[in-house]
């Protein structure tokens, strides 16, 4: 039964990792739009492109 001494902390650690991952998803707003996120994967648009300069920045020199 000595093996319990390793297995229990190991299982708690792994479970804790899962909990930490859950906290991370919670903090990074991943539950805000479950409906939309599940559809977005079907979109063929690449939405990570660098944001184009907005017209306001061009006017901003004055």
């Amino acid at each position: 039964m000595d093996v319990l001494g390793y297995l229990i902390p190991a299982s708690l650690l792994l479970g804790g990792l899962g909990l930490a991952a859950f906290f991370w998803t919670l903090r990074s707003d991943q539950y805000d739009d479950p409906e939309g996120d599940s559809r977005r994967i079907l979109s063929d648009e690449y939405d990570e492109h660098p944001k184009p300069d907005s017209p306001n920045d061009d006017r901003g020199g004055s």
Partner: peptide, 25 residues
């Protein structure tokens, strides 16, 4: 999904709009 990208594309194409994000929920 079509609605999301159509709305976002329409809005992003407008003068002065920097970002648009649809929340379907």
């Amino acid at each position: 999904a079509v609605g999301i990208s159509a709305v976002e594309r329409t809005l992003r194409g407008l003068e002065g709009v920097r970002a648009a994000r649809v929340n379907l929920t």
